[in-house]
Design a protein around this nucleic acid. Structure first.
Length: 214
DNA sequence: CAGTCTCG
DNA sequence: GAAT
């Protein structure tokens, strides 16, 4: 179950940095399969708003699949093997997710990426993700693979400090972003969601972020 | 801590 | 740049 995506790359690749790429349309051919898998995940681990250590409620709704899931509450950020809502393990990582992560990572120059965590974030209009770094993972040599589905959103990709200049790129249904290496800890975020509903997902954008966390 | 907020 |  490999090369499912690579062989069907139709879009264009756009460099965000030396080790960061936007693979436009990379997941488009399998978007319906991804959405079906998401429905199954959410039926077991429903969308929920998480809370930051500062006490704020995040505007996105989140859940996880895979051996580990990223969670936040008053105590801080961490990876957990069980869903705090149910006490049960997160739903397993669908094979389609793994195949996509592996193919996209390879396409971006990262061989043998096997994610053990996938954070799902759902954005309604107005929802956003402030500039942040992904730094709760053990092994920073492993890349991040981020998949966009549904409504378009403006992705911000900055530098190693919060005040570094930020480039913006429109992410559309089926786009995949991969970053790692010297770009692994770059600040990034999503501007408040706006625009037209998506024909398949309506007034939502869903993002999959696949990582090697453990 | 800080994946948020708000002010200038 | 403060905040919890």
């Amino acid at each position: 179950m490999t090369d499912l995506f690579t062989q069907q790359l139709e879009g264009r690749r756009e460099a965000l940095g030396r080790h960061s790429w936007v693979l436009h349309g990379f997941a488009l051919r399998h978007a319906d399969g991804l959405l079906q898998a998401i429905d199954a995940i959410v039926s077991a681990a429903p969308w929920r708003h998480m809370t930051t250590p500062g006490g704020y409620t995040m505007s996105v709704e989140s859940c996880n699949c895979g051996a580990l899931g990223w969670v936040t509450d008053r105590r801080g950020y961490r990876y957990a093997s069980e869903d705090p809502l149910s006490g049960r393990p997160w739903p397993p990582m669908p094979e389609l997710f793994e195949a996509l992560a592996l193919d996209a990572a390879r396409e971006a120059g990262f061989a043998a990426f096997i994610p053990d965590a996938c954070l799902l974030n759902r954005y309604a209009p107005g929802a956003r993700m402030s500039l942040h770094q992904d730094k709760n993972e053990r092994d920073m040599s492993q890349p991040i693979v981020s998949v966009s589905l549904g409504m378009s959103a403006v992705f911000q990709f900055g530098g190693m400090t919060r005040d570094a200049p930020v480039s913006k790129v429109l992410l559309e249904h089926g786009d995949v972003v991969v970053w790692g290496g010297e770009d692994r800890l770059r600040f990034h975020g999503i501007m408040p969601l706006k625009g037209q509903p998506h024909e398949r997902l309506g007034n939502f954008r869903v993002n999959l972020t696949m990582r090697k966390a453990g």
